[in-house]
C-alpha cells in the first residue's frame, strides 16, 4: 500500500510540475509588452506599458544625481530591487551574464535600489553590486544607484522587491516584468529592435 501511495504521489507531483511549468510559460509570454498583467505583477502594481516613463531622481554609486528624463535618446532597462532580496541577487548575476547582449541591442541598464531598501537593513549597494556583477561592475552600460522616495513610489507603488521596466529611446514603457534571473529570455526578446 505504501508503495502504491508513493507511486500516486510521484504521478501527482509530476503532474503538478508539468502544470506549473505550463502556467509559467503562459504567464511569461502574456502581454507584459501589450499592457496586460505579467505573470507575477498585477495591473495596479506598475505603470502601464505604452505610457510615458515619468521622470525622477536617483543617485549613482559615484554620488551623481541623475534623472530618468535625462536617459532619453537610448533604450533603458530601469530595474528596482532591494539588496536583501534573493531574486535580486540572482537577477544581478544573470544581468552580468547578459549585459553584453543587452548592450548589443543598445540598451543601457540602470539598476536602482528601492528607496532605503524598503526600510530594512541589507548589504550596502556598492558591495552588493561589486560582488554580484563581478567584472561587469565597471561596464559603462550598467549603472547602479539608489532611487529617491518619489521615484520608487512612482514606478513601484506596491513596494515589490524586484520589478523592471524597459523604456525605449523616446521614453515610452515597452515592457514590464520582475525577476530578470528567471525572465531573461523574455527580456532579451523584448529588447530586440528597441535601438
Amino acid at each position: 500500500m505504501l508503495f502504491g501511495a508513493s507511486v500516486v504521489a510521484v504521478v501527482a507531483i509530476v503532474g503538478l510540475v508539468v502544470g506549473l511549468q505550463a502556467a509559467n510559460r503562459s504567464s511569461g509570454s502574456s502581454g507584459s509588452t501589450s499592457g496586460s498583467t505579467s505573470g507575477s505583477t498585477s495591473s495596479a502594481a506598475y505603470l502601464p506599458v505604452g505610457s510615458t516613463a515619468p521622470s525622477g531622481e536617483f543617485t549613482t554609486l559615484g554620488g551623481k544625481t541623475e534623472t530618468i528624463a535625462a536617459l532619453r535618446g537610448k533604450p533603458v532597462l530601469l530595474w528596482f530591487m532591494t539588496t536583501w532580496c534573493s531574486s535580486c541577487e540572482a537577477g544581478t548575476q544573470a544581468m552580468a551574464q547578459n549585459i553584453a547582449a543587452l548592450a548589443a541591442d543598445g540598451v543601457r541598464v540602470v539598476e536602482v535600489e528601492n528607496y532605503q531598501d524598503l526600510g530594512q537593513s541589507g548589504p550596502a549597494l556598492p558591495a552588493f553590486a561589486r560582488t554580484l556583477a563581478g567584472r561587469s561592475f565597471t561596464n559603462p552600460d550598467w549603472t547602479f544607484g539608489e532611487a529617491s522616495a518619489t521615484l520608487t513610489h512612482t514606478y513601484n507603488p506596491q513596494a515589490y522587491l524586484d520589478i523592471y521596466y524597459l523604456i525605449d529611446a523616446n521614453g515610452k514603457i515597452t515592457y514590464v516584468n520582475s525577476s530578470p534571473g528567471s525572465t531573461m529570455p523574455q527580456l532579451l526578446s523584448a529588447a530586440k529592435g528597441l535601438a
Partner: peptide, 22 residues
C-alpha cells in the same frame, strides 16, 4: 521513494524566492 519524491519537490520549492517560478 516517498522521501525522494518529497526531497525532489523541496529542491524545486526552496529556491523559489530566487526565481519566483516553479
Amino acid at each position: 521513494m516517498a522521501s525522494t519524491v518529497v526531497a525532489f519537490f523541496y529542491t524545486l520549492l526552496l529556491p523559489f524566492d530566487y526565481t519566483q517560478r516553479f
